[in-house]
């Protein structure tokens, strides 16, 4: 726990030392929210095939972007942290203190997770306050979907970090997953709009279930309504998280055997 707090504090100090970059991270979210809104306006009535959000493309896409941003960071943060520490020469010093690999991984993602929460909040506040979306949202349902979704993405992120340790520059897991999530996850357009076989493929992605459950919650769906998504995501989390942590532990051991911890 002390290690996690130490990382949180360190990451905050580094982040806040780049004041302009920190400002742009928040302002950028506002900018994207604005773009999504204008696209929604342009699409107008043509979005009436969207079953959720009363046919509002802006509400649909804003929810998609907000939570895609959060979950994507959960996926990419770990491998990015490992890669950054390799390049900065700080990975070995990180592995010298008496902390376990899984503590290290969780510590790596704590602050980026806070930042992604902040950005997601910006998207949601923009939609809720300025555009009047989601006035019947059920926070508990959203949380029930988010927790197993984040844990699933954390597990995949740990797999991705393991691949960075072993393969250095290449991160095929993150790359493949990002492309699949962007195209099939249902963040920017409904999964129903795709051909049938792609819809089947989309069901294999945790993002599809996560966004579907979150949108249900934003529309006021109860815990019972989101139960199918929660069940799928929990099952995925139970598989992905331990697998990711074990893979990372194995990758650290392997890199130590090869003497390649600091190579990138």
């Amino acid at each position: 726990m002390t290690a996690a707090v130490a990382y949180l504090r360190r990451d905050f100090l580094v982040w806040s030392s780049y004041r302009l970059a920190a400002f742009w991270q928040v302002a950028g979210a506002l900018g994207i929210a604005g773009i999504v809104y204008f696209i929604g306006e342009a699409v107008g009535d043509r979005a009436n095939s969207i079953p959720e959000e009363n046919g509002s493309y802006a509400a649909f896409a804003l929810a998609g972007v907000a939570f895609f941003d959060m979950l994507f960071r959960g996926l990419g943060t770990l491998s990015a942290s490992v890669s950054e520490h390799q390049r900065a020469g700080t990975l070995e010093p990180m592995l010298l203190p008496p902390i376990r690999e899984h503590e290290l991984l969780l510590s790596f993602c704590l602050f980026p997770f806070c930042i992604s929460m902040l950005r997601t909040s910006v998207f949601l506040i923009f939609g809720f306050v300025l555009l009047g979306f989601w006035d019947s949202a059920n926070g508990l349902s959203i949380l029930a979907v988010l927790v197993p979704a984040q844990l699933t993405f954390l597990g995949i992120g740990a797999l991705s970090a393991a691949s960075v340790l072993l393969l250095k520059q290449g991160d095929p897991i993150r790359l493949a997953y990002s492309v699949a999530m962007l195209t099939l996850g249902g963040a920017f357009f409904p999964v129903d709009a795709m051909p049938g076989w792609l819809q089947q493929l989309a069901l294999l992605l945790p993002l599809t279930h996560a966004l579907s459950g979150i949108r249900e919650g934003l529309d006021g769906g109860s815990l019972v309504d989101v139960a199918p998504q929660v069940a799928v995501l929990t099952a995925l989390a139970v598989v992905c998280l331990p697998a990711g942590l074990l893979a990372f532990r194995w990758a650290v051991r392997r890199a130590k055997q090869e003497g390649s911890l600091v190579e990138y």
Partner: peptide
């Protein structure tokens, strides 16, 4: 290179102290 250059010497050492 094994330090975080954006942090002060005190902050760096405090960070590592927490890890111990």
């Amino acid at each position: 290179r094994s330090f975080f250059w954006r942090l002060s010497g005190f902050e760096n050492l405090l960070f590592y102290a927490s890890l111990y």
